[in-house]
Each structure stands twice: as structure tokens, then as C-alpha cells.
């Protein structure tokens, strides 16, 4: 049972969990046994997911090229799905909003499914990537992205809830959605900041300059600036509701471009 096979099973697991969460939210009341079952299923999948990442790490050591499984697009997508599942579970315990799972789990499924298109062989680490800064940088960045993803989901729901009444009655109150949108950014933002700092420390340590305005670095800074503007609009100008929701959506657009789009621009960081 290699990690790749396990990841394959996880894809179906998350799909099933997503479908079940939809059925649960439509056909049962909050707090029902089925809804608790869906949450348990998600937690179980996440535990297996953790196992698969650890298994890949062990396998890389057996091949004599041991390194943390965070060095190429396949491994970072698997980790991103793991971080997003973790963020959804944490958000559920903090806010008890089942709708987050219904909309969030499909995202985890899509990310995991996309890994099946990539070559899942364990490759040796080129010298530039052999550094502890790499682990800290990738982990903090993706925990940050996971927080922003949860905020994005809440923001989308908030915009839907306020724009169409018919859809709104399924959703939790806009005050709760607004709170989720803000609090998950409050958690994601320090993580992204630490991600940028560790990335700069790694670049300084390995290539001699902490900042060279490489497109990937620049886009993570752009994402950081958007979320800084969000925090100030909220904290110091008292913005809330759909105005901040659009900010969060714009921010997540920057996150997606930082992660995917930028690889089509020339630069240091391309995974391909």
C-alpha cells in the first residue's frame, strides 16, 4: 500500500463525504446523528490523509532520498488538501456551521482529484531545496491558504445569503458568516506572514538575497497586502458584511494566482 494508492482512496472518500454532507444538510436537522456522522467521516479521512503524508515521507527515506513530502506540485497539493480539511474541521468546532463542510469538502475533493493527473513518483531533492526553511515555509504558507479558503467559502455564502432571499433561508445568519470570514483570515494572515518570512529566510540562506521580486514572491506579497487591507478595513474602519466579503474573495483570487497562475510566469519558483 503506497501513499499514492492511499491518496487514490482518499479522493473517493472525500467525494463520498461531500455528497453525504449535502444529503445530511438537506434531509436532517442540525445536530442530527447523520450530520455528526459526516463530521466523523471527515475526521477519519483527515487522519488517513495524515497517515498517507507520513507514509510518503517514510517511503522517501527507504529510497535513500529522504525529504519532507513538500517539494513538488503533487506533494504540495496533497498537503494543501490536508490543511484545508484540517481548517474545515477546526472551523466546524469553532462555529458549528454545517454548511461550511457542504461547500468546503468539494474543494478538498477537487484538490485531491487534481493530484491524480500528476506524476506521483518520489523524486530526489535538488540541493537548493534541501533546507529546514523549506518545510517551515511550505507548511505555514499552506496553513495560511487553508484559512483563507475557509474565509472564501464563508464570503461566498455571505454574498449569496444577502443577494437572494430564497437561498438565504438555508444559510446561517449573515452575522455568523461574517464572523467566520473575519476570524479565519485572522488565523490565516499570521500564517501567511510567517510563510513569507520563512520563504525570505530560505532564499537569503540559499541564494544570498531574501527578496528578489520573483513573481512567486511578489504574488504572495500581493496576497498579503490585500489581506492587510482587509484587516484594516475591518478593524480600524469598522467594515463588515458583504463589503469585507468581496475583499476576502479578491484575496482568495490572489491566493489562487500565487499558487497556480504564477507558474506560467517566468521565475524561480515554477514547480513544473
Amino acid at each position: 500500500m503506497t501513499n499514492a494508492v492511499l491518496n487514490g482512496w482518499l479522493i473517493f472518500g472525500y467525494l463520498a463525504c461531500g455528497v453525504l454532507s449535502l444529503v445530511a444538510i438537506v434531509s436532517t436537522q442540525p445536530g442530527s446523528k447523520m450530520r455528526r456522522g459526516v463530521l466523523g467521516f471527515l475526521i477519519a479521512l483527515w487522519v488517513i490523509h495524515t497517515g498517507s503524508i507520513i507514509l510518503r515521507w517514510l517511503e522517501s527515506h527507504q529510497l535513500g532520498i529522504g525529504h519532507a513530502p513538500l517539494s513538488n506540485l503533487y506533494e504540495s497539493l496533497v498537503f494543501f488538501a490536508w490543511a484545508l480539511a484540517l481548517a474545515l474541521i477546526a472551523a466546524w468546532f469553532r462555529f458549528k456551521a454545517d454548511i461550511l463542510l457542504v461547500v468546503g469538502i468539494p474543494f478538498v475533493f477537487i484538490i485531491m482529484a487534481s493530484t491524480s493527473l500528476l506524476n506521483h513518483e518520489i523524486e530526489p531533492l535538488i540541493p537548493a531545496l534541501q533546507s529546514n526553511w523549506l518545510i517551515a515555509h511550505v507548511i505555514s504558507c499552506f496553513l495560511g491558504y487553508a484559512g483563507f479558503a475557509v474565509s472564501f467559502v464563508a464570503a461566498i455564502l455571505l454574498v449569496l445569503a444577502t443577494s437572494s432571499e430564497s437561498f438565504g433561508q438555508y444559510l446561517p445568519g449573515s452575522r455568523l458568516l461574517d464572523d467566520i470570514c473575519y476570524r479565519s483570515i485572522l488565523v490565516g494572515y499570521p500564517m501567511l506572514t510567517i510563510g513569507i518570512i520563512t520563504g525570505a529566510a530560505w532564499a537569503d540562506y540559499a541564494w544570498g538575497s531574501y527578496w528578489s521580486w520573483d513573481p512567486k514572491e511578489t504574488w504572495s506579497l500581493i496576497t498579503w497586502m490585500v489581506y492587510s487591507a482587509f484587516l484594516h478595513a475591518r478593524l480600524a474602519r469598522g467594515w463588515s458584511g458583504t463589503r469585507t466579503a468581496y475583499f476576502s474573495i479578491a484575496g482568495f483570487g490572489a491566493v489562487l494566482f500565487t499558487y497556480f497562475g504564477v507558474n506560467y510566469l517566468p521565475g524561480l519558483h515554477s514547480y513544473f
Partner: peptide
């Protein structure tokens, strides 16, 4: 004023976008 902060952050973000294109 924090309004200036928000404006500056957005301007810097837009300029940085242009810099990557």
C-alpha cells in the same frame, strides 16, 4: 488615517501586479 493605509496597500498591490506582467 487608516483610509490612507488601505489606499496605499491597494496601490502597492496593483503596482506589484504590473511588475509581474
Amino acid at each position: 488615517s487608516v483610509r490612507m493605509t488601505i489606499v496605499l496597500l491597494i496601490l502597492l498591490a496593483l503596482a506589484s501586479v504590473v511588475g509581474t506582467v
